[in-house]
Amino acid sequence: MNVDVEKCGDVSILHCGGSLDADSVTGFKKVAYDLVDKGSVRIVIDCANLSFVDSMGLGVLISLLRRARSRQGDVKVASLTDDVRTVFEITRLHRLFDVCADPQTACRQFARNT
């Protein structure tokens, strides 16, 4: 998987590509946790190019959300592909995460909550 970090004010957008699964969670975790540890607790996961997520990928997203919320931040997910949306819906995680149409919408939602 590949992860590119873009800054949008105090929001970090993680543009994810490929698959977030048992084989790639470690790399994703390092990038995402580093952000939170450095104080970037408002995070958007851009899933436009994310083709696959398994339960271990979901686990690391939830762990990231818990870390961010414990520091008064949040993690929003944006641009879910059909397959990834299906995974969120069967696991009901669309009720835990704020699911946004695209990263720009997610950034605007963060700005409203400032």
Partner: peptide
């Protein structure tokens, strides 16, 4: 919902 494991 917030569990990080046990979904497989």
């Amino acid at each position: 919902l917030q569990a990080t494991k046990g979904r497989g």
